[in-house]
Design a protein around this nucleic acid. Structure first.
Lengths: 240, 240, 240, 240
DNA sequence: TATGAATGAGTGTTCATTCAT
DNA sequence: GATGAATGAACACTCATTCAT
């Protein structure tokens, strides 16, 4: 019993060693340039040991995401529990998206890695399932904030999950754009500033129009396409 | 003189051969899985020849972007020339962002490739400069559309380039999100639908409030943070 | 004493577990592709335990032969005990060689494995001794059948062990030939048919000429080389 | 033109370098223990170069067979052309089987390798086809000798190819048996002697019975099974 | 310019075997 | 005896890039 527990503990510790080393090496060199041998060396472990804990280099990399996803969730839950108005919560969420990136850019890179072609072959089904579960939970948590805003009448009705997709897409898109600009040697603007302004833009779109009476019929979130004079009339495609 | 011109032409033709082959191979296999040998074979050229025209595999890949950037610019200019209201133009631009992706997803992948760590070492300075020039031009062109909307009072005043960044980031962010979801084996929503709705959201944020008189004092685009009643006042977290 | 016996029994049972698992795994995957870990898993035993009972993977493999050699011997003894004429016994033996292969091809593969270069280093001396003893016994048993035929005057006098070598060689040679043909994708003939015909051929060679009186001077088994008329006399090439 | 020819020659020479080195290394270490790196080193060639000429280690190994198959064929043709009686030719063939093994045992080992499971995946289709073609030709050549014997009435009628199979099987089976015995540390008999005696045995089975009149009805090669008293009567299975 | 044969460093992964507990 | 985590040497194969012709 005691032996088993010790085993358990040691196993966990060893895994941590490896994860830490992997974080370092992948962080410094990126996925492609990182080598199994160096990770093993830094973890002070034999190369073979790596493969006792992870199926492949890809799996090692993606596994690092878990910690990030959990940190992400914790913060989300903290925000959710704050005594704030829904719109304040959403802003807190948006701010968090940025601070999280600023603090742990590596996690965003791993997420970005998830779109690599052929990923599904290199990684175990279970790992992918777990990633799905955790990202799904996080998206749901975020969606809840938006939903509360909608139900409180602060935001127009709509699909809250879609809004989260937009926020996430906007943030990651901006991050990538900035990184590309840096890579191109372009003077890259202040991401913090961009981030702040982006929210102002989106929040306006989300919000109930100011003039509308609190109890009035809500302006639908997806509006009719305005018709241009002289332009071919396209059929209005209402909200799904 | 004539000889030189012929030389020039032949050189250009040869380069085109290679570019076409590269487009095919990179398109089918992605950057990593593509091999110089296969590109050479398809271009009906010796492997060594590739390196007479391109410094490296990376350079070959990134060069493909030029054509995309030019197509992009042409369409932008077409839109600019259309007899549309500024807001209609912006919508046309937004639609174009999507149709361009739908038609040439490969270009987006190359753009995405530009954030690879170590790119600057693998690629010639000149190439990067050229990419900068062309992307810059395209961003400017797009920004012009937004600026026109602002000057016409349809949109609130602000930095038009920033708006273009937002639009671009939003679109590419959504594209990546969808690709990740597909890779994770998640039921992936309809990108076209998402794309449409995203615009509705943003456009609202961009627009002058409905009730405001055309000539009235514009509501500043970046608004003051709303204050939460009863909640502990926390500093804005965006800046950090 | 009792304890020791139990120990003994348990030890034997454990060994059986492993042998059974090894038989399965080697049978399914062949020697090379089989792994110690899988054998351990199937035997429900730790990997290390394998090495308490066997010196090496090779030893595990070769040990499987014992069971086969014993089955072989039992059948040989059964045939020996049958109320048959010597030539009928030999045919029964020959048929058995085939049915044994058809039923337990794995054993033939292990035998074939015994000619691997470097075997002696990978396997304990004792194991090899045991294999020698058991195969030797089997060969002797088979030789006895032949000897009986010779003594009965059914077969010409000669070295019975040699005849067994021939029969064994012929059968295993045919088996290997068929397997190679199958591997090459050649239409492979019916081994059963071949097996039958081969015996007809050999039996004739073994037999006393028909016309010779039972008690007559036996035609020597190894005859003088016939001399070719008109052909240049060449030295026998067999010796070299 | 001259350039092309030189290229051709160089290519051939390089290939020979590699083949020679491969022959050495495989010969010394066997297939499994041989390493690509050592072959390259001995051939004074880069490792990658090996793979310009051969698809895989397996292919390298099997390719060595070609030379052997050609030597084999040449000797077969020589024998065929000799002014000998058919039965003398067959003996010459049989002697050759042995001397060939004695001189080039490595080739027999490669042939034996051909029954490795999974070979077809490790080796190109073309290579296998070529092996088929050449072995097929050799078997045909040998069969011709037997057929001539049959047509001359020296041997009983039958399928000459089958006889060749028997001869081949018998020889290779003996070779393997001897190698196993040597590996087991058994005093291994004189293969040359065994080889000689085996032929006496087989030749008798092949031959027309001595007493039969030249023009008489040939005794069928596959005879009726003799019936044992008291044994279950098995149906006679006539020649196919 | 064009060629294409040659290079050779680089790497993820396996697995028989050991040994501290 | 039994365990099973750890080891680490071993290795085939790839492919971007070069350079002699």
């Amino acid at each position: 019993m005691s032996t088993q527990k010790r085993r358990e503990r040691e196993r966990h510790a060893r895994r941590e060693q490896i994860v830490e080393a992997a974080k370092e090496v992948f962080g410094e060199k990126g996925f492609m340039a990182a080598t199994a041998e160096e990770i093993a060396r830094r973890a002070e472990v034999a190369v073979g040991t790596l493969y006792l804990y992870f199926k492949s280099k890809e799996e090692m990399y993606v596994s690092l995401l878990f910690e990030g996803l959990d940190l992400f969730r914790q913060e989300l839950e903290r925000i959710q529990g704050l005594p704030l108005r829904p719109d304040e919560k959403l802003r807190a969420f948006w701010d968090f998206l940025y601070t999280f990136y600023a603090r742990y850019p590596a996690y965003y890179r791993i997420v970005s890695f998830l779109h690599t072609a052929g990923l599904r072959e290199a990684v175990s089904r279970d790992l992918l399932e777990e990633v799905k579960r955790r990202t799904g939970r996080n998206f749901s948590l975020a969606a809840r904030i938006v939903r509360q805003g909608m139900m409180a009448g602060v935001y127009r009705p709509g699909d809250p999950r879609e809004v989260v997709d937009f926020l996430w897409a906007l943030l990651t898109g901006l991050v990538q754009l900035m990184e590309i600009r840096r890579n191109l040697g372009l003077a890259v603007g202040d991401l913090a500033e961009l981030h702040k302004n982006a929210f102002a833009l989106i929040e306006d779109g989300l919000s109930q129009p100011r003039g509308s009476a609190p109890g009035g019929r809500p302006r639908p979130w997806v509006r009719q396409a305005k018709v241009s004079r002289g332009a071919a009339r396209r059929p209005a495609r209402g909200a799904r």
